[in-house]
């Protein structure tokens, strides 16, 4: 390994980290703006132009607030909870292809932190670890409501992971690879997977809502029953971390949806742009195309949040176990028959 490679990857990882943080920060701003728009209000408009400095002000506020700790025997685990939630939210971005490649100073820079051929499995591994942050935090709070919130959130996430994994199998049968890079390359030229696997996309989208604990599946923080869910006892920046992890998760799942189903960095006329305008410009447009897609999905998450009310808990479990899992198994069978018939 030459040092140029290590420097290149380090810079890339830092940039991804910064971008994820900024996106998560501005998602909080965007969420308020979208909510305000949908409810015919103005939204934050004091700090900066159009309230653009609001996330910074919020961060300052959270850091400056008094740190309150409950009377718990597990102070260490109480600290670990938000840390685990935040780190699992940030870990997934390592395998996402943000663009094709750039040519800088005669070097070909692949716009992906690591291209393993088990990228999708890696994502599922990290997603399944996300439960720990919530469970440990909720339990260490030494509060019944927190524990109930944590158990709810965890059982919801565990249930929807199954449907999520099964829905992705149909897609993998088609693509024949687990590498996100390969999946992106295969979708070149408007062969987006969503046109071939609409059912798989729908199931994956619903499961993504459940995995990120967003409305209509945010039963973990059902105020009327559970006060604040698993982060009832958290205050100051620790609570900020939990909320921030939710937005980082939302950003990452929007990215994964766009990479798996909406062509990733591909856009109409990509090969033409690369031919006529050069590799760099063509691929930079690709990065922006990916960001446009994922911003749409972040907006979609917010749109749903302020449109659809919360499910009841038994409805949520019914949907997960009795509708989504059978549907995704049927989808696998149909995909198998289609592959046999048309290939």
């Amino acid at each position: 390994m030459d040092s140029a490679f290590i420097i290149e990857k380090s810079i890339f990882i830092v940039v991804i980290f910064a971008v994820t943080m900024v996106m998560a920060m501005y998602s909080t701003w965007a969420e308020r703006k979208v909510a305000a728009y949908l409810q015919d209000r103005v939204g934050p408009n004091r700090a900066g132009w159009g309230g653009l400095l609001q996330p910074l002000a919020d961060g300052m506020k959270l850091f400056a607030k008094e740190e309150f700790e409950p009377n718990t025997k597990n102070r260490f685990l109480f600290f670990v909870g938000p840390a685990v939630a935040m780190s699992t939210a940030l870990m997934t971005s390592a395998v996402i292809p943000w663009g094709d490649r750039l040519e800088i100073f005669g070097r070909t820079v692949i716009l992906q932190a690591t291209d393993t051929d088990s990228a999708i499995l890696y994502i599922f591994a990290v997603v399944s670890l996300g439960v720990y942050g919530i469970m440990i935090g909720g339990w260490a709070s030494n509060n019944k409501f927190s524990l109930m919130g944590a158990v709810r959130a965890a059982s919801q996430m565990v249930s929807y992971e199954i449907a999520m994994g099964l829905s992705i199998i149909a897609l993998l049968m088609m693509t024949g690879t687990l590498s996100l890079k390969e999946i992106s390359v295969q979708q070149h030229g408007m062969h987006w997977n969503v046109f071939y696997q609409p059912l798989s996309f729908l199931i994956f989208l619903i499961c993504a809502f459940a995995e990120t604990n967003r409305t209509p599946f945010d039963l973990a923080e059902c105020e009327s029953e559970l006060i604040g869910g698993y982060h009832t006892e958290y205050s100051s920046m620790k609570m900020g971390f939990y909320l921030f992890a939710e937005y980082a998760n939302m950003f990452i799942s929007a990215t994964i949806i766009s990479v798996l189903f909406f062509g990733g960095y591909n856009y109409p006329g990509m090969s033409w742009a690369i031919e006529n305008w050069g590799v760099n410009i063509g691929n930079v447009i690709g990065i922006f195309a990916l960001f446009a897609k994922l911003c749409f999905f972040i907006f979609f998450f917010m749109w749903i949040r302020w449109t659809i009310p919360r499910f009841r808990y038994d409805q949520l479990m019914n949907l997960g176990w009795r509708i989504l899992i059978p549907l995704s198994i049927v989808n696998i069978i149909i995909t198998g028959i289609c592959i046999l018939a048309f290939k």
């Binding site: 499995l121 599922f124 591994a125 399944s128 670890l129 439960v131 565990v158 992971e161």
Partner: peptide, 8 residues
């Protein structure tokens, strides 16, 4: 291993 043991 992570998915099955730690995750499930």
């Amino acid at each position: 291993h992570v998915i099955v043991y730690s995750g499930a």
